[in-house]
Simulated assay, not measured.
Amino acid sequence: MAYDKRQATEEFTRWSRSYDRGVLQPLLFAPSRRALGARLAQRFGSKPFRLLDVGCGTGQFVAEVRDRFPHAEVVALDLVRGMLERGRERWERIGDRVRPVQGDGERLPFVDQTFDVITCANSFHHYPHQDQAIREMQRVLKPGGRLILLDGYRDAPWGWFIYDVCVTAVEGAVLHCSRKRMRHLYHQAGLEMIEQRIHRGPAPFLVSEGRRPVSAIPAPHTANAARATAESQARNRV
């Protein structure tokens, strides 16, 4: 049975109740946040930038971004309202420099060329239409902007066992991309692949970083993709 957004919404709504206390926090999520934070520091240093975090969950990563990069303007997007509601105290603490928005990663509620960098960590395997999600991320990146996508590394035997056997047994027919497939998705969307790096450990993961060319022609996307307005963002805001 194909994996769909209804299933993803139900799963993440259920997981939101224990998300911040789960066993994956020390095994995968904390190392993932460190890897993304290091890349942001390398790319931007102390310069201001606009960041969109797709699949933000309860906001742990964007809270760290706000503390580490005080000049960054951050939008945190998640499909599941329950995740955003579980992070309500965090949103209140970090203030107006981070804006939580409920929205669909395959139909981003933002106008073209809005962000300097997009991050997406450990949620991409839940997206039923991964090619469309990547095209949407390309669309809202500024020319020269970066997409940093992190997900489980399944090309080696241990990662294959974790993600293609164990995770799919629990979560259903989710899809962790191989390195080759991820490169294909970036290229298909009009993004230049800059680097792919494997992070080893109990839960290995792959970081893929691409760039929207400065003179790129926008990749094809659905007619509805660019229709987002400030009103829709405000309506979805927590």
Rank of each mutant, 00 (worst) to 15 (best):
Gly103Lys: 10
Val98Leu: 08
Arg66Lys: 13
Arg93Pro: 01
Val75Met: 04
Arg81Val: 02
Asp53Gly: 04
Gln60Met: 11
Val98Ser: 11
Ala63Leu: 08
Asp67Glu: 14
Glu64Pro: 00
Phe61Gln: 11
Ala72Pro: 05
Leu52Cys: 08
Pro48Val: 11
Val98Phe: 02
Pro70Ser: 13
Asp96Val: 07
Val65Arg: 03
His71Pro: 00
Gly57Trp: 12
Arg99Pro: 02
Val54Arg: 01
Val101Pro: 00
Gly57Leu: 14
Arg68Leu: 03
Arg97Asn: 04
Asp53Ser: 14
Leu77Met: 08
Val75Ser: 10
Arg93Leu: 07
Cys56Met: 05
Asp53Met: 14
Glu73Asp: 06
Leu40Ile: 06
Arg99Asp: 04
Arg43Met: 09
Arg50Thr: 15
Asp53Ala: 09
Glu64Gln: 15
Leu51Ala: 12
Phe44Ile: 03
Asp96Met: 01
Arg81Leu: 10
Arg50Gln: 06
Glu73Thr: 13
Ile94Met: 04
Gly87Cys: 07
Gly105Trp: 05
Gly87Asn: 07
Glu106Met: 13
Pro70Ala: 06
Met83Cys: 08
Pro70Met: 00
Leu84Cys: 13
Arg43Ala: 15
Gln42Ile: 01
Arg50His: 06
Pro48Lys: 02
Phe61Thr: 13
His71Lys: 15
Pro100His: 12
Thr58Pro: 01
Glu64Ala: 15
Gly57Gln: 11
Pro100Gln: 07
Ala41Phe: 00
Ser46Arg: 09
Cys56Ile: 01
Arg66Asp: 11
Arg68Asp: 07
Ala76Thr: 06
Arg66Pro: 01
Gly95Ala: 05
Glu92His: 03
Leu52Lys: 04
Asp67Arg: 15
Glu85Asn: 07
Leu40Gln: 08
Val54Ser: 07
Val101His: 01
Arg93Glu: 10
Val75Asn: 02
Leu79Met: 15
Glu106Ile: 03
Leu77Asp: 05
Ala63Lys: 04
His71Val: 08
Thr58Gln: 05
Glu92Gly: 02
Val74Asn: 06
Arg90Val: 13
Thr58Glu: 03
Cys56Trp: 02
Leu79Gln: 12
Gly95Cys: 14
Phe44Lys: 05
Ile94Trp: 05
Leu51Ser: 09
Met83Gln: 09
Val62Cys: 14
Ile94Gln: 09
Leu51Ile: 07
Glu85Met: 11
Gln60Thr: 08
Ala72Arg: 15
Asp53Leu: 07
Gln102Leu: 04
Leu84Met: 08
Glu85Ser: 14
Ser46Met: 03
Val65Ser: 04
Leu79Thr: 06
Asp53Val: 13
Asp78Arg: 13
Arg97Asp: 12
Glu73Trp: 13
Val62Ile: 07
Gly59Phe: 10
Gly45Lys: 02
Gln60Gly: 04
Arg90Thr: 12
Asp78Ala: 07
Gly105His: 02
Gly103Leu: 02
Gly55Leu: 11
Asp67Thr: 09
Ser46Phe: 00
Arg50Trp: 00
Asp96Pro: 10
Arg99Met: 03
Ser46Lys: 14
Arg90Gly: 08
Gly57Ile: 12
Ala41Gln: 03
His71Thr: 11
Ala63Asn: 06
Arg68Glu: 10
Arg99Tyr: 10
Pro70Gln: 14
Gln42Leu: 15
Asp96Asn: 10
Leu79Ser: 01
Asp104Leu: 02
Cys56Lys: 07
Gly105Glu: 09
Arg97Ser: 06
Arg68Gly: 06
Phe69Trp: 09
Ala63Val: 05
Gly95Asn: 12
Glu89Ser: 13
Gly103Gln: 09
Leu77His: 13
Lys47Thr: 09
Glu64Arg: 12
Gln42Tyr: 04
